[in-house]
Write a protein that binds this DNA or RNA. Sequence first.
DNA 1: TAAAAATGGACTAAAATAGTCGTATATAAA
DNA 2: TTTATATACGACTATTTTAGTCCATTTTTA
Lengths: 135, 135
Amino acid sequence: MLNFSKKIEYGLIALRYIALIGDGNIVTAKEISDKYKISYELLAKVLQKLAKAGIINSFYGVNGGYTLAKSPEKIKLSEVILALEGKSNISIVTCNSDQPESCTIFDRCTIKTPLNKIQSVINNMFSEISISEIL
Amino acid sequence: MLNFSKKIEYGLIALRYIALIGDGNIVTAKEISDKYKISYELLAKVLQKLAKAGIINSFYGVNGGYTLAKSPEKIKLSEVILALEGKSNISIVTCNSDQPESCTIFDRCTIKTPLNKIQSVINNMFSEISISEIL
DNA sequence: TAAAAATGGACTAAAATAGTCGTATATAAA
DNA sequence: TTTATATACGACTATTTTAGTCCATTTTTA
Ligand code: SF4
Ligand code: SF4
């Protein structure tokens, strides 16, 4: 119920690999997917999203691949999650903004406001933890 | 990706109702499901689980229903989650114990160990927060 | 130009969540 | 002792989310 998605797990594994093994050198998606036996297509998409978010640099063509765009200390877990899940925050409830969205009891719900406190504790944690802590 | 399930949300809403509106008096599942327009059957199961876990008392028969089994300060979010999800902890990754379970890259995964740090921060938070904080 | 790599959209499969249905059991009150 | 009301519980279905696949395109280097 509170699991990280595979996208995030694979993303973290990849970032770790690029940071540690790559260490400045270009690393390809294939290299990582082979190493960890992760679906190439899936991992490729994860890397594309990380590149789009400016977390890693991407290089086309024959000797192409990826490098980190900044030092591991500066890559926060929150931005990895944002890049891969596309949500503005890691929301404990689906109704965080103010639209009823999908929840049928939105206007009668009594817990969404107090739950924001827990939300901010989680947000703070994720924005403080950098991927250098998983190296 | 980190959402509480509806089970938990409904559980918290119900606990809040029993604590505040009930205030010692017996409250029925129907009363709560009517009030918030939550599926009766779904809510009933949630309440049954909370009762089984000793968080609320249940009373059969005509004037039956539920009351809190302890004071709101003593009902921790962690035990509500445990009661409703049946997992021993709120796990950020599916592989926390040591079995390969469902993950195909278990033995090659490099992040599960460092992720435990984040896990314990989350665990601590949930075992400190009581439902009195959502009243 | 050929090979190697990233990009990106559409699609399918699998798993988790949410919700429903039917029936049994217990209890209070009439 | 019957009836109405309430919890208990297992099996089932539907919906949504997540995971994974496929395929065609673009870019670059050798
Ligand atoms: S139940 Fe409440 S907290 Fe949960 S999604 Fe609905 S409005 Fe939000
Ligand atoms: S990818 Fe790693 S952390 Fe995630 S479930 Fe598999 S072994 Fe666990």
